[in-house]
């Protein structure tokens, strides 16, 4: 193919679309995960607290904590990971508080999102940006 101005524009546009894909695909994956959890219901703000460090030196183990007073289930998503799912906590009858902490992997600087299903059936969301110095998903 001769490199004319027209061809150069076409190739350039193609490269742009390909480069744009992963980011869009990731955002779509977290949106799909949220939709699967909420069943398409609206997600508001409210009784959910997500505690995560502002800066994590090592993305392999980032301590996080989720807490809520009235949640029955809390889902945690890492929106910038190759697969956004992190964990879903279901609290049973004998859970003294609707809170839990764990350690997660983050591939890079990104938003961590927690979505809680409350006792009244509504959904609330909290998010926190974590800066990651060394990514935790391996090359």
């Amino acid at each position: 193919m001769e490199l004319t101005r027209r061809n150069a524009i076409i190739v350039g546009a193609g490269a742009f679309v390909v480069a744009g894909l992963p980011i869009r695909a990731m955002a779509a994956a977290s949106e799909d995960a949220i939709a699967a959890f909420t069943g398409g219901a609206e997600v508001g703000a409210g009784d959910i607290k997500l505690t995560a460090p502002e800066i994590a030196e090592n993305g392999n183990t980032v301590p996080i904590e989720v807490a809520s007073d009235t949640a029955t289930e809390i889902m945690v998503l890492a929106t910038g990971n190759p697969t956004p799912g992190v964990a879903t906590f279901k609290f049973g009858k004998l859970a003294a508080s609707r809170s839990a902490s764990t350690r997660i992997r983050l591939a890079g600087t990104q938003d961590v999102v927690a979505i809680a299903k409350l006792e009244d059936g509504s959904f609330v969301k909290a998010s926190s940006t974590v800066k990651v110095t060394i990514g935790g998903c391996g090359g």
Binding site: N81, T83, F89, G92
Partner: peptide, 30 residues
């Protein structure tokens, strides 16, 4: 985690949980 057969917490885990999975939570002891 169950206490005398009654559920305390049930966690579905994905690949983003760190090596040597750690959990901390609170339970009622009737």
């Amino acid at each position: 985690c169950e206490f005398n057969g009654e559920s305390v917490v049930d966690v579905a885990m994905e690949a983003a949980i760190s090596t040597n999975p750690y959990f901390e939570f609170e339970a009622l002891v009737p």
